[in-house]
Design a protein around this nucleic acid. Sequence first.
DNA 1: GATGAATGAGATTTCATTCAT
DNA 2: AATGAATGAAATCTCATTCAT
Lengths: 214, 214, 214, 214
Amino acid sequence: MENKRITDLFAESLDQNCDLSEKQKAILRSSLELFAEQGFTKTNTSQIAQKAGVAEGTVYRRFKTKDEILAAILAPLTGQVVNALVEDFTQHRFDVEYVTLRDFLRAVVENRMHFVNENYKVIKVFISQALFQQQLVQTLMGEFQKALQENLFLTLKNLKQRELLVDWPDPRIFQFMAGTVVTFLLRVLFMGPQDVEAEIEMTLDFLEKGLSPE
Amino acid sequence: MENKRITDLFAESLDQNCDLSEKQKAILRSSLELFAEQGFTKTNTSQIAQKAGVAEGTVYRRFKTKDEILAAILAPLTGQVVNALVEDFTQHRFDVEYVTLRDFLRAVVENRMHFVNENYKVIKVFISQALFQQQLVQTLMGEFQKALQENLFLTLKNLKQRELLVDWPDPRIFQFMAGTVVTFLLRVLFMGPQDVEAEIEMTLDFLEKGLSPE
Amino acid sequence: MENKRITDLFAESLDQNCDLSEKQKAILRSSLELFAEQGFTKTNTSQIAQKAGVAEGTVYRRFKTKDEILAAILAPLTGQVVNALVEDFTQHRFDVEYVTLRDFLRAVVENRMHFVNENYKVIKVFISQALFQQQLVQTLMGEFQKALQENLFLTLKNLKQRELLVDWPDPRIFQFMAGTVVTFLLRVLFMGPQDVEAEIEMTLDFLEKGLSPE
Amino acid sequence: MENKRITDLFAESLDQNCDLSEKQKAILRSSLELFAEQGFTKTNTSQIAQKAGVAEGTVYRRFKTKDEILAAILAPLTGQVVNALVEDFTQHRFDVEYVTLRDFLRAVVENRMHFVNENYKVIKVFISQALFQQQLVQTLMGEFQKALQENLFLTLKNLKQRELLVDWPDPRIFQFMAGTVVTFLLRVLFMGPQDVEAEIEMTLDFLEKGLSPE
DNA sequence: GATGAATGAGATTTCATTCAT
DNA sequence: AATGAATGAAATCTCATTCAT
């Protein structure tokens, strides 16, 4: 299954949103791009207006402040990002029973790496905001936690029962898996997209070794 | 084992810098607090002056621009830190020969976790800036890479020769070790300092398992 | 005595104006409310539209500018009111011959107090505008002066002839009568509608005393 | 005794205020003039800056908003205006015992008329604000009420005891006196300064007649 | 006629930086 | 060295008015 880009999902969700006029959608699209490119604070409303091809006043007609633009972008995205991650696990859980630990790890990690590769610009916006906005962190954490409980952790239990996975606490196992993805994310964030294929096998070697039952 | 060498990087670097008057140090301390709390752009120079207990003009006596304050804060990270990291490994490498892989991992990882815990504010500011400023990363990466080559990688070679470590490429091994620290860092960044002792043994279990020779 | 002739000036003038659609009347009503509450400049057209339950564009269908709304609100004051005042005196002069000075004063003053009570919002808007716009005053003063000459002053003459009124110049007498009403007006403007009945007798005591012939 | 202009009193109080820099004083002086000339809402900060001979940013250094400028002007003035009125009565009460009612009325009314004549521009600013700001009304009313109790009403009592004044409630008597001044004020507000000498005797005739004991 | 999104001119406000004291 | 008022360029924001539907 192919991951959709968050930006594409965002564009789609904008298209379906009859609440917003075409110009207002253009404003949000342009804002997201500029925020991802330069960061929120370095982007000013005249840039947004220009990129969206509207007058500066138009920006403020629908969105009372610049912060409200950001909120209008992030609010639907938090849902979408978490959902994108969740849906995926859900599908795997019900459709496939992983034959080996490596199969499982591959499915999860490879998928995340692609996701990171394709969405790092949006992720940047999230991280830059989350660094100074606990509330955003709370929201993300909350949704994420719930998603993990209902998806990944169920699969982990199954793998442990089948003695394909070391018997450590779920959060711990998740943390180690996440560690490899996060390292990958950092490289992507700071150096641009990386070659997943070149990374994945070695990463799986490590995780498989570290997470196999004794 | 001497793990205390890397402690509060920023405070130390201030103390050692005899160049700076007390007021100038106060300015940097206040700036770091504010930058870490609100971000660089949302912090204005009058806030800095007020928190430091100096006049706004005084800020500009030593630091020609607001960016220069930022640079002065991040300087230890790009300068001394890499040196501190290097020194550390250097000492361990020459003074002690690690008896077990776990000893080695513990020395490196525990140390880094403490470092993260004690310097997360500088790191936070650095990351928030680096997200939209590749140049910052370049400098750090360059020095870091060099330091790794000349220090950690030599130790890895030694461990491999003694068959205490899996025979994978050095950068790969480093990456997995880094992964665990980075995950720890994320938690610290978004949720404040964490309990190293509570984490370290489980992390070592995982790394030891994943990095032992076949 | 028929004192009810001058009642709610603005409402009446709206009702009589068949030129205006229901929506247009709603616009004027809402505007008056808002102007009286917040002032003209602090009221924006979107508030008016919202309060009137119409679209912002609709406001501009009938009224070419925001100032034109104001003019439409103040129109009755400069047009009909003066007429109403005139008519009033006219009737009294020809229909009734006041038996006592007090009767005359009561008719005039009580009537004006009710008028003030019921139309203080329009008056408030008028005054707030007139304070920094002499032109507004000119128009009203002109018409008022003429109306006085042709009505009140004739009655005064009659009363003087019958030795019911002190023999002072008409404008002077008018000014003293007006003074009591203006004081009443001030209280209404700043503290909302007042109780006419509670005031009138004492006011008449004073005026009667001050304006009786020697 | 000569009334001092409020603007002069204001200028003096500014001079004594070491809190404010010269430019900041200039800003307040210019603001008051412009507000008196054009009204608050029609005055923009660039006009203020220009008239004060400062940069627009300077306006906002001390005063966070335009409203704060207005507040900075009105706050000290409310005190001064009321004090100007109060002090006056105080002096008369202790120094002079009025020989006749007319003497008393003359002292009070003539004084007020001159005050109105000289300060109508500032009064305009007060009224225009008070119309839409109950709080300002409250403050003024409160201080005024207190001042009346402690000054005018004492003199009224004395006059009544000496049977020089009709035995009506104090507020009522004040209201009638005020009525004549307010009427005068209205003419001044809307038509500019009036000739006090030409008015005063006739006004006194009326008041004396209306307020003499039976 | 009615709508409400769009406009753009202009107002308010911010703030890094300078500079006279 | 230290101060803090002053600056002005640029940002955010407001709103009367227009206009396509």
